[in-house]
């Protein structure tokens, strides 16, 4: 699963899905994660970057990242790797 590549993300956390016409907002940590996901970074790389920058432990980030991805999946912002 990866982020659909036509998703538009602005610097202030506004997310637009041109395929569905839906818009979303993300908070700053969500924006950082979303941008890394769009670049195709691995889960472990993302977790490592976050704990480097923020005052938080790895297992919490991992749990939150999975939850975040699950929300993105529910909002149909993710696609299968072969799509």
């Amino acid at each position: 699963m990866k982020i659909k590549n036509n998703i538009a993300v602005s610097d202030n956390g506004f997310v637009f899905n041109p395929g569905s016409g839906e818009s979303f907002t993300v908070n700053p940590v969500g924006l950082v994660m979303l941008n890394m996901l769009r670049k195709g970074l691995s889960q472990s790389k993302i977790v490592a970057t976050i704990i480097e920058e923020y005052n938080i432990d790895a297992s919490s980030v991992e749990r939150d990242l999975n939850d975040f991805k699950e929300m993105m999946r529910q909002y149909r912002l993710m696609q299968h790797d072969d799509e």
Partner: peptide, 22 residues
């Protein structure tokens, strides 16, 4: 100094809903 962490969240903007973001 590391930045304060907040859980990531994504929220859909609905037309019938006021948004409290910002």
């Amino acid at each position: 100094v590391k930045r304060t962490y907040e859980r990531p969240v994504i929220k859909k903007l609905e037309s019938n809903m006021p948004n409290k973001f910002g």
